[in-house]
Write a protein that binds this DNA or RNA. Sequence first.
DNA 1: TCGAAGATTCTA
DNA 2: AGAATCTTCGAA
Length: 157
Amino acid sequence: MIVETEAYTGKNDPGSHAYKRRTLRNEPMFGPPGRAYVYFCYGNHFLFNIVTEKQDTPGAVLIRALEPRAGVEIMKKLRKTKDEIKLTNGPGKLTQALAIDRNHNCADLRGDELFVAPGPAKKYKISAGSRIGIKQGLDKKWRFWIKGSKFVSVRQK
DNA sequence: TCGAAGATTCTA
DNA sequence: AGAATCTTCGAA
């Protein structure tokens, strides 16, 4: 279950990859919605986004943290830890736990390999704040998480 | 063609 | 607090 996300747009969002111009890397953000935008960061990690806006309008939602609901044993193996909290409580961690890599870039999320399933019919309280790990666009409170969830990523410096 | 920076994580 | 580690961008 997705418990933490961040939103990124284009022109008016200095923190976004798509802020300056359309490039090879951010091309998926300009593509049709409902697809994956996966990119490699800091030489170590893949980050997984879901493209949200219509064709030629850049926009994506970064998936920052998950609450494990299924396949926990597989995730433990992939992450090399038995601590369930640490399986998916960060954007680079959850891609490792789900074995998402550059092969999934531009993947159609309506397929049967990588997709988003409906969540529980329960209402959660959502908190909002500044996005993490970027130096510009901090004025935008575009990070959202389920209030009180233990599986939200740890705050960084 | 090269140098710098980056939507992070792990370990000391 | 600092390193690991490599891709992408933009200027030369």
